[in-house]
Each structure stands twice: as C-alpha cells, then as structure tokens.
Amino acid sequence: MTRPTASTAEHLLQLLADRVTEGLDSAAEGEVQALCAALPEFHEAYFEPAAAAVDLALADGDVDPLPAALRARVLADAERWFAGAAAEPAAGRVRLHRRQPRELRGGPRWSARAGWYLAAAAGALALVGWWQALMIPAEPPAEAPRTYAAFVAETPDAVHASWAGLEPGYAQVRGEAVWSDARQAGYLRLVGLPPNDAARAQYQLWIVDPDRDVHPVDGGVFDVAATGEVVVPIHAKLAVDHPTTFAITLEQPGGVVVSGGPLLVAGNVAGQAAGAG
C-alpha cells in the first residue's frame, strides 16, 4: 500500500474543510472516508467542533428568538418522540409536522433491472466512520400508518417486495416490505430474522430508488426480539418515488449513513425482474 504523503493530508484537510462549510457529495464523502482510513490522525468530524465554535463566536449576539409556533411544534415533536422511545426504545420515532422536502432530481437515471439495482446498492454501501454514530438520519415527514394491516388495506397503490435471505443464517427469513409513493410511508414485516442485541448492533433498512440516485436511501433502524418477528413502519430519510428493491444490513446502534455491511436480506418489488441484465 502506498504511504500517504503530506499532499494527501493537505487534500484531506481541504475536503474536511469543504465538508463543514459547503458539504460534500457522496463521491467526495467516500474519498474522505477512504483517506481517513489511510490517515488515522484524521476523522470525518475533524473540523466540526472548530466550525461550530467559529459560528458561535462570530454569530454571538445575532440570535433570533425561536418563533412561538415553531417552538410549539418542536415541543410536540419531542413529546411524541419521547413517548415513542419509552414505549418502544428501538423505534423512538416521531412524525414531524412539516412539509415533505421537495427533492430535486439529479444523478443518473437507472435503467437496468432490479437485480442490477441491488448490485449497485451493494456497491454503494461503503466505509463507516465513528462520527456517523452521531449522524443518525432524521425521521421523514411520512404519514404515519396505523397498523400494517390497515396500511395494506387502505393503500391499494402500495408496492410489495417479498424478502429473501442472501447470507448464511438468513435463508429462513420471510415477509415483505410494502411502500406507498403517494403516502411516502410503508411497513416492514419480517419473520425469521435472527434477534439482535440493540446495544451492539441494529438492523437497518435500505431502499433502492434508481430514479432518485444511485445510492440507496436509508430506511431507518429496527430491532428484532427473540420471536424473530417484526412489523415496523418504514422511515425513509429522503423522498422515495419508485423503489425497486429493499435491503437490510446489520449496523452499529443507531445505524449508519453509508454501510459497509453485507446485504443480509433483500426483496425486489413485485413486477421488477430479478437478475442482472
């Protein structure tokens, strides 16, 4: 392996500086992760405290009060979030009372078939950094489905994907993912998934939507009890319009932004042909 040079370090520092000011695209994020792996004295959050401190220093005194209506929404969100966390620690989630982000379409439009999508998704799942423990995706403004059965009954346009185990120990997994583009909501139903120790690892759902990006969308984390059965709502981090594949990995508690784990279980949306080419 080539030893990193000083110019490599300087390049990484520039990327890290860009990261806390302009933000990075996924390719640059991947480069940062790779360089940080090669240069352990750096990490993805290297400049975050400094940028926050600069912000506080220069903007001190330039703080507007939180509008009362927004304060009320934040407190209502908090009440629901903590209620959810208390009732179901692994699923402490809240439906935010806000508008759906207006995603701007970009990136390549995928044209291959579902099996290829899955391969592309697996390729996009890359390295994980410690900082990502803090980078837990926000919950989307999905319309909260009441129950799995009710959701299926009330959402005739929902797409269905049946699960299939991809790794040893997961061949017995059955169930499906259902998703509604219109409602931006869905459910996972899984049977036979090995239980996880939430303190060590959590399952994470990924949604492949080739219309929006080559990278899979984070669908949220969940836990599986000893029964091996789980029914949880899907919390897509970004708007999902035409999912073709759902996949599950096992990640650090809280989930990751970019996964390096193998796809344990996956399901192609019905009507999407499996297999590459």
Partner: peptide, 16 residues
C-alpha cells in the same frame, strides 16, 4: 425550509 430543519435538528438532538 428552515422551520422544517429546526424540527429535524431537535429530533436529532434528543437522539444524541
């Protein structure tokens, strides 16, 4: 958008 973002940030804060 900023209002939506504030709500996201606070949920993130509770989580962390």
């Amino acid at each position: 958008e900023a209002e939506d973002a504030v709500q996201e940030v606070f949920i993130e804060l509770w989580k962390n």
